[in-house]
Design a binder for these strands. Structure first.
Length: 474
RNA sequence: UCCCCAGUAGCUCAGUCGGUAGAGCAGGUGGCUGUUAACCACCUUGUCCGUGGUUCGAGUCCGCGCUGGGGAGCCA
């Protein structure tokens, strides 16, 4: 294996990450570890410090011979303090760990007054931790969640890169509301106390920063399609904003979405990619994040790893919306909302299909045209469109996508029917006028994926700083 | 936005029939020569979410508001 060239000075006495100390450092070696104190315990001769630097769920035990250190140094070492430790890695005399650091030198970078530091050795509720989001990355739970989140972000880029997809940065600020995926946040530099008006009294957006009304994006899809019809296969991975007053464990006002868009893919190709993609990501977590998954499995979700394995090992069920409606009607189950062809499926219906009927992920296709977006490819007869939703246990819809309407006539007719002004999407329509191609794509809710691979149950606990109605602290 | 539930010590929670509040943990002090959410002893800590009402008396009952949670809708 050719190691990448390293421009750092290897001779410098640099700290070693705790993950690397635990994984590969030999006992007898002098090491320097730096991190935050989880607990300190012991007696007047001997102290044990559990030190964690976030490189792994595991802490390393620091053994301190009390008489060799000044009292005021040891007094400063309390839960939450940040320290640097020089010492010898030794095999542990106690149970519970194989190696530990016998401290020779300790430097305190930052104390944490135990009277006021909010994190204790004992467990806290997730609700409480949300109120101290600036400190919660220091807990085992959020360390694990954030490492898994990183691993998934990395795996997404790698998956697409390995398959020749181009990462496309679509705009955050947009002038169009074309996707209709929800209410949008306004972007403006106008003074709300003193808005410029036109002659008829409307707000004069021509005086605004962009010379027109602008919002935060609800999806990068439309721009993604433009690039797919040039580069063949692209994906976006960026923040998305929905100003819905949703108050659930599955919605955020600011979330991250992955949106691949592929020329020459029909709906089946689209489904094949979605299924392979999501299985690949779950498998990546299973093979790279097992320490963290074991912790989460133990503390939050006893079925987590088993459920992840079952997703990877089984094919997703694939059926049409119409077939799903039949199954629901024949189920004999007394749903709160009755099932009728043409209505959108309710949560209880999706849950029944995934968790009771099929007992595995389900891909539903060919939804009624009237409950789906204008850009989806119309089937023969026009009653349904080539849409697909991937439904997962516990979290419901994790992916929504479709084959796109590539026919210029049909697409503009549908836009007109839904009263979408052509002036807002003329550029989108032009791709169907010049060198159009069959193409497909989907959107994966990144936080919903993280919910699934961490076993967390609230989406506010899988993003570092959640944005929800009435909450934009931190 | 709608329905349901909750808000009591720094944290997690108990508080019976309406009679002015308690436990565990955390924190402090002392003890302990290998601890593992260390242990043992002692000690400290309250705007009972806010507001208005009922009552001789409200943590407890009622109205309104705020915040949080669960479910629904919107969706990823």
């Amino acid at each position: 294996m050719v190691l990448p060239r390293c421009y750092l000075n290897p001779m410098k006495n640099r700290r070693i990450k705790i993950r690397d100390i635990l994984k590969s450092t030999k006992p007898g070696t002098t090491v320097k570890a730096k991190g935050w104190v989880r607990t300190k315990r012991g007696n007047k001769n001997l102290n044990f410090i559990a030190l964690n630097d976030g490189s792994t769920i595991h802490s390393i035990q620091i053994v301190v011979d009390v008489p060799e250190f000044e009292d005021n140094i040891l007094q400063q070492i309390t839960t939450g303090a940040c320290i640097s430790v020089n010492g010898t890695l030794v095999e542990s005399m106690g149970k519970g760990q194989t190696v530990e650091i016998q401290a020779k030198e300790i430097k305190v970078y930052g104390t944490a007054d135990p009277e006021t530091y909010p994190l204790q050795k004992k467990g806290h509720s997730l609700e409480f931790l949300r109120e101290i989001a600036h400190l919660r990355p220091r807990t085992n739970t959020f360390g694990a969640v954030l490492r898994v989140r990183h691993a998934m972000a990395f795996a997404i880029h790698k998956y697409f890169n390995d398959r020749g997809f181009c990462c496309l940065h679509t705009p955050i600020i947009t002038g169009s509301d074309a996707e209709g995926a929800g209410n949008m946040f306004r972007v403006s530099t106008l003074d709300p106390e003193c808005l410029p008006r036109t002659e008829n009294g409307a707000v004069d957006y021509s005086r605004d920063f962009f010379g027109r009304e602008t919002k935060l994006t609800v999806s990068g899809q439309l721009e993604g399609e433009l690039a797919a019809l040039a580069l063949s296969e692209i994906y976006t991975f960026g923040p998305t904003f929905r100003a819905e007053n949703s108050n659930t464990a599955r919605h955020l006002a600011e979330f991250w979405m992955v949106e691949p868009e592929m020329a020459f893919y029909d709906l089946t190709d689209n489904m094949d990619l979605a299924e392979d993609f999501i299985k690949h990501l779950i498998n990546h977590a299973l093979t790279n994040c097992m320490d963290d998954l074991e912790f989460l499995n133990k503390m939050y979700d006893r079925d987590l790893v088993a459920r992840m394995n079952s997703i990877v090992d089984n094919n997703f069920a694939r059926l049409t919306y119409t077939e799903a409606v039949e199954i629901l009607k024949k189920s004999g189950k007394d749903f709160e909302f009755p099932v009728n062809w043409g209505c959108d499926l309710q949560s209880e219906h999706e849950t029944f299909l995934v968790e009771t009927h099929f007992k595995k992920p389900v891909i539903l296709t060919d939804y009624p045209r009237d409950i789906k977006a204008f850009y989806m490819k119309q089937n023969e007869g026009s009653k349904t469109v080539r849409a697909m939703d991937v439904l997962f246990p516990r979290i419901g819809e994790i992916i929504g996508g479709s084959q796109r309407e590539e026919n210029h006539e049909k697409l503009s007719a549908r836009a007109r029917e839904l009263k979408i002004p052509e002036k807002d999407i003329w550029w989108y329509l032009e791709t169907r006028k010049f060198g159009t191609a069959p193409h497909s794509g989907f959107g994966l809710g990144f936080e919903r994926l993280i919910l699934f691979v961490t076993g967390m149950s609230n989406i506010r606990d899988v993003i570092p700083f959640p944005r929800t109605p009435k909450n934009a602290e931190f």
